[in-house]
Design a protein around this nucleic acid. Structure first.
Lengths: 229, 229
DNA sequence: ATTGATTAACGTTATTTAACGTTTTATGGT
DNA sequence: ACCATAAAACGTTAAATAACGTTAATCAAT
């Protein structure tokens, strides 16, 4: 059964969409806004995301970017009344894979959901996704369970530790912008001058000490680069 | 340049679409119907197909199936006045990857074309790919690990050192423009008057001192030439 | 009370800047 | 052509800066 993460602030519409999709056999998790989004992604592990664009606090485009940061492969459909081409561009460049204009028919939504699941499900090779279990040489990371299985034993990760490690894993062997990390994990980059992130990087490094071929490399002025080779 | 195969029987619309896309830098092959379709696919080798649905002889859905039979990965966008959900379903189950209702704006078409190209992984990434290991005589450079393995031992490279060495390796035994180096590593060439790059070149030269047959040659006014012979 | 998250204070290092030296290339008069 | 001189470009070194690392203390939420 396919799992759908659905973010929409308008209660009446949300109700209709959720009920219809549920009736059609999807498992739907509905949220009114993007708070605790990363937790939802990791624990609920949706197959596809439906995002309203105009939301009270953080808009849907921004949410899409955060989702992309920890999962490069998941389909994201925007549902919005914004019909300007400019918004369409924003949507796709934020990592969206389809864009549906309100008002839409439930039939069309379902068809487009199925289509996205079909085409994104194909060559997962080019599009890296963050699965339930991430193999990191002799380690295993379970993002949804907040657990890092080391040779020595199981390390229970905190929320933040897990989020940051998930982000590093999503960008395995490629750079991650420090700002992106801060924005994705903390919601904004007002912590840019804070040493908070460094503290967590240190903790994560601690878990991997002595592990040959696993390293979190600092790219000064840019971010981090999780090397597993 | 991306190649588009466009099948549309209505001459006026076809003209507008073809001209606009050509102006936008795509290479467009327009056909009035699906005859000799497979030849067109094979010889023209398009990156994406735009198919009208209602065509005189064979309809677009059928054409899509034929295309899918010989190419599982190419994106197919339907352009049609048929707005019934049923047609949408037909389109996607025929192997279509997007479905655009007439009348559509050229802007939206372009955005959706680019999006499909991106999703299907045909997007020309500007990432220069070096192999995991670059052999430089008695040295070995691991760009992904920020490591230079010298006879004396492993040298841990900094971000900048690694970037510059990677760039030199990408142009091994051929010249590299100084400006290009600056732009690639620092994002722009505003450092053109700075001695910053020279400092790093010196560091790299330091790692290779005494190594017979390895040299970073200065091409004054042009750039550098990484000689390994 | 215990755990996780954040802040603060100070240590460390990659990167940049600055100052000056060296080498190559261009220029100009004879 | 010749040489002198200037100009441009790069080399070298050390100091300054900005960015990150580390540790412990504090805060906040069960």
């Amino acid at each position: 059964m396919k799992k759908i993460l659905y973010i929409e602030d308008e209660p009446y519409l949300a109700r209709i969409v959720k009920d219809t999709l549920t009736l059609k056999g999807y498992q739907v998790l509905h949220k009114k806004d993007g708070s605790a989004l990363l937790d939802a992604i990791n624990s609920f592990a949706p197959d596809i995301c439906l995002l309203d664009v105009m939301l009270p606090e953080v808009d849907g485009f921004t949410l899409a970017r955060h989702i992309r940061n920890i999962n490069a492969g998941i389909p994201i459909i925007f549902l919005t009344a914004k019909t300007q081409t400019e918004d369409l561009v924003k949507g796709f460049s934020a990592g969206g894979t389809d864009y549906l204009k309100k008002p839409f028919s439930m039939e069309e939504l379902i068809v487009r959901i199925d289509n996205q699941l079909k085409i994104m499900g194909k060559d997962a090779g080019a599009l890296q996704t963050l699965p339930d279990e991430v193999a990191l040489k002799q380690f295993r990371f379970y993002p949804g369970r907040f657990e890092l299985h080391a040779p020595a034993g199981v390390i229970k990760l905190s929320n933040r530790e897990s989020q940051i490690l998930a982000m590093l894993c999503a960008h395995l062997n490629t750079p991650v912008d420090r700002r992106e990390l801060l924005k994705t994990v903390w919601g904004d980059d007002s912590f840019f001058n804070s040493r908070n992130l460094d503290v967590y990087i240190r903790k994560l490094r601690g878990y991997f000490t002595g592990a040959e071929g696993i390293e979190i490399v600092t790219l000064k002025g840019q971010g981090y680069h999780f090397v597993v080779a």
